[in-house]
Design a protein around this nucleic acid. Sequence first.
DNA 1: AGCGTATAGTTGACTATATCAACTATTGGG
DNA 2: CCCAATAGTTGATATAGTCAACTATACGCT
Lengths: 144, 144
Amino acid sequence: MPQTSLSSALFTLAQSYRVTVREAINANELGLNAMHVRCLHIIAETQHCTANDIVAKTGRDKAQIARLVKELIKLELVSKCADENDKRCLILSFTEQGNALFSRLEVAEQEVDAKLCHGLTDQQVRDFIAIATTMIENINHNTP
Amino acid sequence: MPQTSLSSALFTLAQSYRVTVREAINANELGLNAMHVRCLHIIAETQHCTANDIVAKTGRDKAQIARLVKELIKLELVSKCADENDKRCLILSFTEQGNALFSRLEVAEQEVDAKLCHGLTDQQVRDFIAIATTMIENINHNTP
DNA sequence: AGCGTATAGTTGACTATATCAACTATTGGG
DNA sequence: CCCAATAGTTGATATAGTCAACTATACGCT
């Protein structure tokens, strides 16, 4: 199955990745999907993280994020707490369970990534990410 | 907005691409989405193309493909006709309108691709596609 | 020939994902 | 103190993707 064009490579890859992550996650008996995982990552890497930060970093609709966060809270992985200075801002942070799960998740992800990158050099992977990042910037910025 | 990991680069890129293609397509007043476009490409590049070929090349569910094809037929872009030797196979081909539209589509896509690849060399783009293709193979094949 | 099985495609019901628009609550600036 | 702006929530709806059951044709077989 040769991939000819950029677009078909992208679509196929994104689709395959989604399916694989989902399998990996189901295999790990977590009730999470790829977007949940992205949220968890952003919460982990952002101190003082709000729902709005997730919206900004993912580019998704804020309604979607609100619901994802709600689910994470219901799963008791994340808790929210109003900012003292600005009570509109609800700061998201991991619960203990959230921390534990995130560790497991990182392991599972590393496995998926390792599989994905099998036969590729570190340099190739770095280049790939760099080019993808350039493309993302191209798409987001020059929007004439 | 720095992209750190492979997965977030992939997701963001796929999402941005989808949005951009959709905008380009809506701007061109066609009632098509990204999957329609993929189907049209496959029909164009596959002689004697059946629905099953599209299923094989996209990895999507055959129900989804059946519905996409149905829509393309309703839009009178594509027609289907039973194979003489095997009446189960319905061969898909462009109508005149389909041909005309596909030409327009190619122009629109080239614009999206050009935008996406702005500032990148041809070699970088080729490498990118090659790496993506390797990743797709890694994901599809070694599924232990 | 006639039987069973495989294949191509279709359809219904469903789930998941994403988007839009209207809403509340809080804030900071004049 | 009022108003525009911001953070978040919710309902309705649209879009995308999946599963399972079904029809129709074809192929292989004894």
